[in-house]
């Protein structure tokens, strides 16, 4: 299939993804920490944006990849796609955790609280819990094929659920806490936009690189299990 061939072709340039990610993130970090100006209202704290926004964007992108991969698995039943989904979930969990932590650190100086039930924060927390549930479900199932199918179903349901969670929390919040702590608009200077874009590109490249490495890791683990003579699928109810 043409898509498989495309992915194999991409895999040959794995190192380029890693190198490109390192380059983008390196330049982005330098520009973000040194050359970009501090914000008028938030001061130096605005520099957290250069790690927070890219990791949040990348985790949403990762979840989109997980959703598409899950549909693809249910359609084609390709075990490598299942490995890819499993790898994506792990990396997405890592990115969501990073986005939550940095968001919390950013919220303390700007909103003077570590946590608020903001729709974005809440839906990210739900996303985090969903991904934890996803990975737990995978560890509790022994049959590989069943594991892949059930996990794919869970990922699809979770993806559909996410916008509903976002809107319900938004309605709920406008009812209970008037938006007194809304984000004060950061007036984007072009010096701020360049490192942000660089960090976002670097972060997505890093995600692709991590995805390749982790898929490979899970594939090799399965190969080793097969080589050690264990059955690939053993049914236990």
């Amino acid at each position: 299939m043409i898509l498989n061939r495309f992915i194999r072709w991409l895999g040959r340039y794995e190192g380029w993804f890693g190198g490109g990610a390192a380059l983008c993130i390196g330049i982005g970090l330098y520009m973000g920490l040194v050359t970009s100006p501090p914000d008028y209202y938030q001061g130096e704290v605005v520099r957290i944006m250069y790690v927070h926004v890219p990791s949040a964007k990348t985790s949403l992108f990762a979840y989109l990849v997980l959703f598409i991969g899950s549909i693809w698995y249910l359609w084609k039943r390709d075990p490598v796609i299942d490995n890819m989904c499993h790898a994506t979930a792990g990396i997405a969990l890592f990115y969501v955790g990073t986005a939550l932590l940095t968001g919390s650190i950013w919220a303390k100086p700007t909103w003077n609280t570590w946590w608020t039930w903001d729709p974005r924060l809440t839906s990210f927390a739900i996303l985090f819990l969903t991904l934890v549930g996803y990975l737990m479900l995978r560890t509790f199932l022994d049959d590989k094929e069943k594991e892949a199918t059930f996990a794919a179903i869970l990922a699809i349901i979770g993806f559909i659920d996410l916008p509903i969670v976002y809107f319900s929390v938004e309605w709920w919040r406008t009812l209970h806490q008037p938006m007194s702590m809304s984000v004060r608009g950061i007036s984007f200077a072009p010096e701020m936009l360049t490192p942000l874009i660089l960090m976002s590109i670097g972060s997505s490249l890093l995600f692709s690189y991590m995805l390749m490495v982790r898929t490979q890791m899970l594939y090799l683990e399965r190969l080793l299990e097969a080589k050690q003579g264990r059955l690939l699928s053993e049914t236990r109810l």
């Binding site: 739900i126 969903t130 549930g133 509790f140 022994d142 059930f150 349901i157 969670v165 809107f167 319900s168």
Partner: peptide, 18 residues
């Protein structure tokens, strides 16, 4: 699933937030 008593609420409750 092996730990079904644990897994069921862990999967259901976050999604049932709305």
């Amino acid at each position: 699933v092996r730990a079904r008593e644990v897994m069921f609420p862990i999967l259901l409750l976050p999604m049932a937030v709305p």
